Amino acid sequence: MADAREYVLSGTRGTVAVREWPRERPRYVALVVHGYGEHVGRYEEVAGVLVTHGAAVFGPDHMGHGRSAGERVLVEDFEDVVTDVHAVADLARSAHPDAPLVLIGHSMGGLIAARYAQRYGDVLTALVLSGPVIGDWELPRRLLALDEIPDTPISPAALSRDPAVGAAYTADPLVWHGPMKRPTVEAFARTLDTAAKGGDIGRLPLLWLHGDDDRLVPLAGSRVGIEQLSGGGLGNLTERIYPGARHEVFNETNKAEVFADLTRFLDGVLTG
């Protein structure tokens, strides 16, 4: 795989760091939207799979995350993040104007990607959501009911059955290991409601990937959002639920199966 390239864009609330994993004459462009507290650099292996499959891959660090500007993990309005992702999509489409665009969102990135599809679905060829924060995610309600949000960081063991994943996450200086911030939690609650009322994505092909032992974003709550987004399952929904898998299915012990499901879905969409 060719060396990654770095860009800096002017975002809605400061500079946004963007990474590209290039591919000459790509079959498609994949835009990766990372989750809460992390950064797009954690998707190196995913990008490698996609580049090998024929994609040029782009992904930003969201505001307050990774190498982008802003107070750490502070997101006051996720609609601004969606707008920033659209600027990255414009960068990718200007580089490869004839290539189909696929959006891949994980966890918080799944919420951002879902809103992107509701706002800009006409530019997308496919949508992939991994452990998405959509539907009935009860954590914001629980935290906002407290006078003070506790300093309880994400448990590395909740990410994957592979202990090496949790160890790397713990040691990563670009990952946030502190408490959630109230404005961010409030923004989660608002955007979950906005997405629920934002309508379905019609016939846009949607792949939903989820571990059935996901303790951070439980399966049942996300299913509510997937059904809303896909029009009650009447659209082009493909569902893959992995027994025993935890939150980060791309980093799970069965990741080869997950990557095969991902590339098979994309082949079906691209050959249509």
Rank of each mutant, 00 (worst) to 15 (best):
H210R: 06
R246D: 15
R223C: 09
R203D: 14
D214M: 04
R215K: 12
R203C: 02
L219M: 15
N236E: 10
R240P: 13
P218M: 00
Q228M: 13
G244E: 05
A220R: 08
Q228K: 12
W208L: 15
P205A: 12
A220F: 08
G232W: 02
R240K: 15
L216G: 02
L219T: 13
G244P: 10
L216F: 01
L234Q: 09
W208K: 06
S230Y: 07
E239P: 09
V224H: 07
L219K: 04
I241K: 03
I241W: 05
L207A: 01
E239W: 02
E239V: 15
Y242W: 13
L234R: 09
L204Q: 09
P218T: 00
R246Q: 15
G233L: 03
G235E: 09
P205C: 08
G231M: 07
R215M: 09
D214L: 05
S230K: 01
R240V: 15
I226S: 07
P218F: 08
A220C: 07
N236G: 01
G211S: 02
I241L: 15
G235C: 14
Y242F: 14
E227W: 05
L209S: 07
Y242M: 10
L206H: 00
N236I: 07
N236V: 05
Y242V: 10
L219R: 06
E239G: 07
L206Q: 00
E239Y: 03
L207S: 01
V217A: 04
D214C: 11
L234C: 05
N236L: 06
G244L: 04
N236S: 10
S222M: 03
L209D: 06
V217T: 14
D212N: 02
I226N: 11
G231H: 04
L206W: 00
R223V: 14
Y242I: 08
G211F: 12
A220E: 15
A245C: 06
L209T: 07
R240M: 14
L219F: 08
R203H: 10
W208N: 11
N236M: 09
Y242S: 11
L219E: 11
V217S: 06
Q228C: 11
L237R: 14
L206Y: 00
E227G: 05
V217F: 02
P218H: 03
R215L: 14
G211R: 07
